[in-house]
Design a protein around this nucleic acid. Structure first.
Length: 105
DNA sequence: AGTAAGGCGGGCA
DNA sequence: GTGCCCGCCTTAC
């Protein structure tokens, strides 16, 4: 389903992630759905993980559907730190009210 | 070309 | 609400 570099799954994921404003979050599943591949949530995480060099992409704003912050190349603690700094409320490794911080698109 | 390993999700106990 | 299990899609060897 992907031919050119522009259509590579990872790039499409990054493109979406780069649109998430500070203080907001999106779930791995949301991105998968946005790419018309509702079952690719895991592949989304895989894409973010491998593109760790792209520090400018706010991949720390992608969390799990259950509110858990999910993984992060620099460690979940670092991820929580960043999100908190941006205003996202997190308690015990989970976004307190996911719906209120969830970015619709 | 086969396979394993991921920053996951949903269903069910 | 928490934990487990199994299914899913992509990428890297």
């Amino acid at each position: 389903m992907h031919k050119s570099n522009l259509d590579r799954f990872d790039d499409l994921v990054l493109k979406i992630v780069s649109q998430i404003p500070s203080g907001m979050v999106v779930t791995y599943g949301d991105i998968a759905r946005a790419l018309k591949s509702p079952r690719s949530a895991r592949a989304v995480g895989n894409a973010l993980n491998k593109n760790k060099t792209l520090i400018v992409i706010p991949c720390h704003r992608v969390v799990r559907s259950d509110g858990g912050v999910g993984g992060y190349v620099l460690g979940t603690e670092k991820k929580i730190e960043l999100l908190t700094k941006e205003g996202v409320e997190i308690c015990d490794g989970r976004v307190v009210d996911l719906e209120s911080f969830r970015c619709k698109f």
